[in-house]
Design a binder for these strands. Structure first.
Length: 604
RNA sequence: CGGGGUGUAGCGCAGCUUGGUAGCGCGUCUCGUUCGGGACGAGAAGGUCGGAGGUUCGAAUCCUCUCACCCCGACCA
């Protein structure tokens, strides 16, 4: 139980000019957070209470799922990152500094390395596996452009867990823990009162294979996710598959190939306008190359998508069977590519090329059967390009492309290689189409594999006395971001509306007239009653006008407001109102208030 | 890292073009009247105008350098 006059809740009528999103505006105005520097915030008492409640839920579910809490240093010697090259991969995101002895260190952006080191030093038998350890700690990532308050700060609070296994499958295997974490995360976010989606995701710079993201559904979210309403399939845009799409190269050309001079037109929009077409009437040909050229056939991979679509590197990788990256511009020019003006014909004229075409880039929609494309010479584009007439190579027969199928031609493949879009066919439910939604990522679980254990030479002897690299998983939750996401998801024009499980207090007693003896007596009795039943109570005992108190009550968003004043006492008790309800609440007899509050809290 | 912008009282802003010794609203403090949805009146406190250098009799204002912060893009938990 706290009294407003004795704690620190500096509410403000105006938000700082740079606050744009509701979570940033309200958390600041309601006295939860205060900016200290770019992307760095104070957590004031109200915020700390919310964070603690989220952390408690996290701890209960993590412990319940067999994980053990620990804590590693915030500061990590830079050598640990060199082992995995993440000092380079993270680049400037890694906040580095040098101590008085000239030793380089970093503020941990996440702690795979240091935890792997820790386990390596303490686990050397398969009998000690599996193990799953976690911590809740401040992380630091030196974002170039922090924004949106707590949603993308530089310093943030994160729960990160790391599991270690001898095998992927079976009892004690990675998948078992991964599944346990999956359901623990579902429990955590459900208990936090969040509306969320679970989506399939690429692994990102952290490395590894399978992963899922937990996204709070929210229109202001920074991430786009694709969902199939029929099957429940959901994935982030980078990962999202599309359903079967038909393709055919066999359209009859209605016009001849013609070359146009298109100097100094960087964007595809500008070129399309100049040629009298739209980006959807053009082909975009991206020159890519294998990451490890020695281990695969072709030197170059040309990915062709429609002009208004985006090539997806991961999908190209899956289609060709080896990892690819954007082609190095210098060596691509040396090989003969007119970067910026490449057409699919370069795949035929330049040796060692593999051509991969997205179904939507085969036969154009509408009349004409031809595309606008690059001319394979600087400052020129062609119109009237027709695959069968103008490519000069054998093309695959018409058919369909589904996520698990790649159609092979001699030197031409057709495959899903672009980012999914709203309206695309669902990969899981024939006839349904994908929808795009926005979300805020609050949790992410990865199957890491052996990337870190191999880098740190962390292996154990198995039953057959064979040395085996330990298999890892890692599981993160943005704790401070979860707090902000709650506000993004649940607020109105007047302020925050906390879900009860994470609210800083369950009930706010608004003393209309704190100097009134009878009010104070009733208030103390009700507060004691509630506290003894485990309800967190904040008493607004400030000598303020009622209007100010009600405005502040709405701002800070405590789920239940109990108003006590001479008028309510006259009517026999106190007014009880939910934050999410408008107007006046109901007057409840003083002795019944705690029962009433308890009932409201239990009914959500 | 590209493009744009802003630094003046705790918060929001004006003043800068055309140099003359700093102002408004909110908040804070005192007194009085008010008292269930951000009251009213009277009074008060609070600023090396981001920093350094320069021009000038005189700089918040003009010039140079610097630092910080923000927005869009790229990137990203």
């Amino acid at each position: 139980m706290h009294r407003w006059s004795r704690t620190l809740i500096p509410t403000a009528r105006d938000a700082p000019a740079d606050a744009e999103l509701p979570s940033h505006i309200f958390l600041t105005r309601a006295g939860y957070i205060r900016k200290v520097g770019s992307g760095v915030y104070d957590y004031l008492p109200l915020a700390k209470r919310v964070l603690s409640k989220i952390e408690t839920i996290v701890r209960e579910e993590m412990d319940g799922a067999g994980a053990s809490e620990m804590l590693v240093p915030h500061i990590v010697p830079i050598e640990l990152y060199k082992g995995t090259k993440r000092d380079e991969d993270y680049g400037d995101l890694l906040m580095r500094f040098t101590d008085r002895h000239g030793r380089d260190a970093a503020l941990g952006p996440t702690h795979e390395e240091i935890v792997t080191e820790m386990l390596k030093g303490s686990v050397n038998s398969y009998k000690q596996l599996p193990v799953n350890v976690y911590q809740i700690q401040t992380k630091f990532r030196d974002e170039f452009r922090p924004r949106a308050g707590l949603l993308r700060g530089r310093e943030f609070i994160m729960k990160d867990a790391y599991s270690f296994h001898l095998a992927v499958e079976g009892e004690g295997g990675l998948n078992e823990t991964y599944d346990a974490m999956y359901s623990a995360y579902e429990n955590i976010f459900r208990r936090c009162g969040l509306d969320f989606s679970i989506v399939e995701a690429e692994a990102g710079p952290i490395g590894g294979s399978a992963s899922h993201e937990f996204m709070v559904n929210c229109a202001t979210g920074e991430d786009t996710i694709m969902v199939c309403p029929a099957s429940g399939y959901a994935a982030n845009v980078e990962k999202c598959e599309t359903g079967e799409r038909a393709y055919s190269f066999a359209s009859a050309p209605a016009r001849d190939l013609a070359t146009h001079h298109t100097p100094k037109m960087p964007g595809i929009d500008g070129v399309a306008e100049h040629l009298g077409t739209t980006p959807a009437g053009m082909l975009k040909t991206i020159v890519m190359q294998p990451v490890e050229p020695e281990e695969c056939g072709p030197k170059w991979v040309l990915a062709v998508v429609r002009g208004d679509h985006d090539v997806n590197e991961g999908k190209v990788r899956d289609a060709v069977g080896f990892a690819v990256e954007m082609g190095d511009e210098k060596s691509a020019r040396e090989a003969g590519f007119s970067i910026g003006y490449v057409s699919p014909r370069s795949a035929i004229s330049i040796p060692d090329c593999l051509l991969v075409v997205d179904p939507d880039a085969t036969s154009p929609e509408g009349e004409g059967g031809t595309w606008a494309t690059g001319s394979d010479k600087p400052d020129h584009h062609d119109t009237g390009f027709n695959w069968t007439r103008d490519l000069g190579a054998e093309l695959p027969e018409p058919g369909t492309v589904s996520p698990d199928k790649t159609v092979l031609g001699d030197s031409v493949k057709v495959a899903d290689i672009r980012n999914a879009l709203a309206g695309d066919p669902s990969p899981r439910s024939p006839g349904a189409t994908l929808e795009a939604k926005r979300g805020i990522e609050v949790g992410h679980i990865f199957k890491l594999g052996t990337k870190y254990s191999e880098a740190f030479d962390f292996s154990v002897l198995d039953k057959d006395q064979k040395k085996q690299a330990v298999i890892m998983g890692c599981y993160g939750i943005g704790v401070s971001r979860t707090m902000a996401a709650c506000v993004e998801m649940s607020h109105d024009d007047n302020g925050i509306i906390w879900p009860a499980p994470v609210a800083p207090y369950h009930a706010l007693i608004c003393l209309v007239k704190p100097e009134d003896e009878a009010s104070r007596t009733a208030c103390d009795q009700i507060a004691d009653d509630l506290s003894s039943r485990g309800v967190d109570v904040l008493i607004d005992d400030r000598k303020e006008r009622p209007g100010v108190k009600f405005k502040d009550a709405d701002l800070i968003g405590i789920p239940i407001r109990i108003t006590i004043g001479p008028k309510t006492l006259e009517k026999g008790g106190a007014e009880v109102k939910r934050r999410r309800e408008e107007g006046f609440g109901e007057v409840v007899e003083s002795g019944d208030v705690s029962d009433r509050v308890f009932a409201l809290l239990s009914s959500r």
